[in-house]
Design a protein around this nucleic acid. Sequence first.
DNA 1: TCTGGGGTCCTAGGACCC
DNA 2: TCTGGGGTCCTAGGACCC
Length: 423
Amino acid sequence: MKTPIAISDSANFYVSAERIFDPSLKNVPVIVLSNNDGCAVARSDEAKALGIKMGEPLHLIRDKVEAHGVRVFSSNYTLYGDISRRVVEVYEDFTPNVEVYSIDECFLDFGGFADRETHARRLRAEVLRRIGVPVRVGIAPTKTLAKCANEIAKKNPIFAGVLDMMDERLSDWLLPKVPVGDIWGIGSRTDAKLAKLGIRTAAELRAMPARQARALGTVVLERTVLELQGEPCLALEDVEPQRKGMAVTRSAGTPMTDFDTLFQALTAHATRAAEKLRRHGLVAGTLTVFFHTNRHRLDRPQYSGSRTTRLTPMSADTFDLVEAARRCAKAAWPKAQAGTYSFTKAGVMLDDLVRFEDRPRTLFDVERPKSAALMAALDQVNDRFGKKTMVLGSEGMKRSWQLRADHRSPRYTTRIEDLPVVR
DNA sequence: TCTGGGGTCCTAGGACCC
DNA sequence: TCTGGGGTCCTAGGACCC
């Protein structure tokens, strides 16, 4: 039998977290707002019952909030992070392998337990007893099916928070009742495409040939179909991956119409981004700046600008990042139509992150990676080891050149004379 | 002058997730 | 008037190289 995978998620997590410390919040409508207090991002069941939607702007629900005495909170991510870690500790008592998927969701290796449902119910009771947060558990042979099971358990109180869908007869019976848009990985765009083909349920998507799925969407949709068929394409990742990028983005309180104002905002974002990098002990290899007009105002002229630049050397230095952001902003700024647009959102994104201690110590100017000498070196490597080989190992090398397989792979520094190690 | 195959790199943007 | 922020992965197209 295939290894059972469980996913456990907390119900209305931010609200549940707030309720731990304030019993007066029980059984009353509660919402938690997004960063700038703009939208409702978590709602208690009572708030949902009032028709408050996920992501709904606060200003559109003011009347409801006042009429029903909805308790409103700004988000407190420090608190939620702490609660989340404590919930994970409980999970770790119930399974050897935990993948922390998000602040309120974990995939759990449920292999080797004879009575999975009882095990899940015990886990559920223990999280509630020790932390005070209600969770729901879905179990299935693949992550996508486990998410389905979790979703079904969430919507149907009859399951009392646990659904084990390892038995195929059970998924055969349930998947026709799951709207295709509820499946993990199917967003609104794909949902619309599938609707045109008359595919409305998880069971119907499961029946789609993998090739057709790939043609209609991408490899992602193909994997979703295979996972629905019970073939695992997504492994349990129980080691925390090195993060690949980070971003600092904000909506502007007052729209920005001139370059200096935009650059002022971007300077603040780049400064915060540099601090964030250093806090995590990282340096970045790539910086991207973007800005765009208000997407909710289609009656006004729209513009979105973005520009990416390489940071050489890789850096977490505020000055370097601000300078790079300035270059990018200038390049993306709509000079010809200056004054036409008012920008309401801007951000700085950093990619190709590596730990500070792993940063390449450059002995030659990587601004000119295509210098004749480097190209000659690459050719020489290719001649020697065949076209496929580009990544040079690091054993016994003397630093002189930097080579890599592609722009995302790690860099290696070596001398042409010392090329024996090739992978 | 035209014709190529086989690559990498870079950029921009789409789609989805929580 | 006010409508989030921070991530991941994938694809396409052009520039450029030999």
